[in-house]
Design a binder for these strands. Structure first.
Lengths: 240, 240
DNA sequence: CGACTTCTTGAGGAACGTCAACCGCAGTGG
DNA sequence: CCACTGCGGTTGACGTTCCTCAAGAAGTCG
């Protein structure tokens, strides 16, 4: 009840501006809000709810192995629908916050009912899912056959597309890398050392600039794009 | 018109038995069918439609690079909803048939209208999407940090879960590997040679049996499961 | 039979993971 | 104020791994 009131009272500022959630009808929005609970998360916190909308920050589905290997198999940014409801699979992984975040958790049963009742809510879920599937296909492509340098270029472009990471326009496209190097490594399936070396190399070659440790400016966009699309395959082992 | 009649006349046998599509109401089914076109595909054929249901066979989203590297970023099996409608992303990839397949293509606009009108169709899409997202998260986990041997074990379990691959019960769980070694390689992000060596090794260690080149019997399920969950990390480079 | 494809096996090298050490920074406590 | 600790990031050395290449085996199709 209290949560409901908190959320409903300031309904307008809940969803990030320009997020597609603002396209819902007022009725659907308030219906969803009635099932919602806002959760504030610190970096590293695990999220118990598997359904909701990320208002700000970064969440990730983390999978760990007993020997310490760790993968971040999805990243969620602000405005994303988070839906991990299908848990019948073996190792589902944990939903964790990668930085301080605000998560609008939705009640699973009530939301399911609203999906059935409101076509626009169902359409929103379908649109979000389609977007996430496309994103994951890209990510799988990166992981499957790209070298670390290419992966890094690709993931930098991905971050650059995120809302809220762009710095002042005067900086001509510099943006804030929203997650740590270690997490980037776990996301692209390499070790932190490799990420560090790859970033150095991109910088040495003049493709990117690192004004601050957590900021990136892509100085040679065509070359980086080419790299992200597979411009640097593994070199031949043939002698001469 | 002709296609519609063909499909609608034999409506019952269209969807694979036990597929969740049979749970739709009769009205919704016939509504969908009215927008449907059955397409027969040979191995290697590219599918132009980006929306439909796979009735039999195997489809895959293939991404290629100019230097010949190739990745299969998703596999679809019978009963799966195929939806590649979001194409605003850079490199979308091609939907191709990995073996002879029957694909029930749906008209995008009409289907969108039916999704908005029929809650059970919308629910079906949402359920399928959720399932696919979970599958892709698992696959990303494999690709991100597993060794080829572990990947192979994991993908063998994935195939074993597919409908229609199980052989006679007398064979005690042997199943038909539905795709070629080369395609397995592209799916788990390694080279065909590595797949070949990994299969040999699993066989040598007595974890699996290969009665026919395209069949697998997992003889030591617990050990294989352990392997698939990360039981064989890279060995240390430390000298004792 | 030859031409072709797919799979297999082997040899060798580049690359990335492993380990270790160091740096800078933030927090803590004296 | 400084020492201590812990953490994230960086750099270097080294070795396993898996990719590259090549060649042969096995199956398919004409």
């Amino acid at each position: 009840m209290q949560d409901f009131q908190n959320v409903a009272r300031e309904l307008a500022p809940v969803f990030p501006t320009h997020s597609r959630w603002n396209g819902l009808t007022a009725a659907s929005t308030s219906a969803l809000m009635r099932t919602a609970t806002m959760i504030n998360l610190n970096c590293g916190d695990q999220v118990n709810s598997g359904l909701g909308v990320l208002i700000s920050g970064v969440l990730s589905v983390e999978k760990e192995l007993s020997d310490g290997r760790r993968a971040l198999c999805v990243l969620f940014h602000e405005g994303d629908l988070v839906d991990l409801r299908r848990t019948e699979r073996a190792r589902q992984g944990n939903l964790i916050a990668i930085k301080e975040s605000e998560f609008l958790a939705l009640d699973e049963d009530q939301t399911a009912a609203w999906i059935a009742k409101c076509p626009d809510i169902a359409g929103m879920f379908i649109a979000e899912f389609g977007e996430h599937l496309a994103r994951m296909r890209d990510h799988v492509t990166d992981l499957a056959f790209k070298t670390p340098l290419e992966c890094l270029a690709s993931v930098l472009f991905e971050f650059r597309r995120w809302p809220g990471v762009r710095l002042g326009v005067l900086q001509s496209g510099a943006f804030r890398v929203p997650i740590s190097r270690g997490n980037i490594a776990d996301y692209i399936g390499v070790k932190p050392e490799t990420v560090s070396r790859a970033i150095r190399q991109l910088e040495r070659e003049g493709l990117i600039d690192i004004p601050e440790p957590d900021q990136v400016l892509i100085t040679n966009i065509p070359a980086m794009r080419c790299l992200a699309n597979g411009g640097r395959p593994r070199q031949s082992t043939r002698k001469n």
